[in-house]
Structure formats: structure tokens, C-alpha cells
Amino acid sequence: MVNRILVGAHYGLKDWIIQRATAIIMAVYTVIFLVVIAAVGPDSFDAWRGIFANGFMKFATFLFFVSVFYHAWIGIRDIWMDYIKPDALRLLMMIATAAVLVGYAGWAVQILWRM
């Protein structure tokens, strides 16, 4: 008989750290973005597009999006784990969540590099 104890090891530690690491990345980006917006005041198409044409902002924005999607995966998965009791439905919700988030990541790449 296998008697595995599911507490005390590092179960979930990786997700816990990633949730916080992505939070810090998003928080820093939020400040940078607000400062840039305040400085540029993008009320024309060219000014708005110029923000994301800049190499650093393109990279930072992409990093922000990846952080949003990974952070959202952990948070939404936790919501399903808390409230959706039937195993099959919970698994389905998790798969659907992961699927849309991967799709969004591809979409974000397309938005930033094909603009």
C-alpha cells in the first residue's frame, strides 16, 4: 500500500512563486506604462502607435502580457478548484482556461509584431 502524504513537500511552491514574480513584473510595467502615457499624452494614432513601436516598450509589453496570462492561469485555476466540485467539469474548465490563455499569448504576439 502506498501511503503518500500530500503535505510538507513543495507541492504548489512553484506556482506560488510564479504568481508573485508575475505580479511584480505587472506592477512595474503598470508604473512604466502610466509614466509613458502621462509623458506622451497619446491622443493621435501616430503617438499611440509610436509607444509600441519602441523596442523596449514592445518587449516590456510582451513580458507584461505573458505575465498576465500565467498569473491569470494560476488565479482562475484556484477559483475552479474552490468552487467547481464535479471532477470532470473542473478539469474541463481548467483545460478551457489554459487553452484560451495560450491563444491570447499568440494573439498578443501578433498584435505587437504585426502592427
Binding site: 499611440w48 502607435r49 491569470a72 491570447y104 498584435i111
Partner: peptide, 22 residues
Amino acid sequence: GAAIFLLLPVLLWLLQSSLASP
């Protein structure tokens, strides 16, 4: 957090449109 997750496609679409053309 859940609301922002649900609105992600709308926000991505708005960003895409805003960068597409004048």
C-alpha cells in the same frame, strides 16, 4: 481578477484595433 480575465479578449481586441490604422 476574474472580471479582468473575462474582459481580456475585449481588451486585446481594443488594443489590436487601436494599433491597426488611423
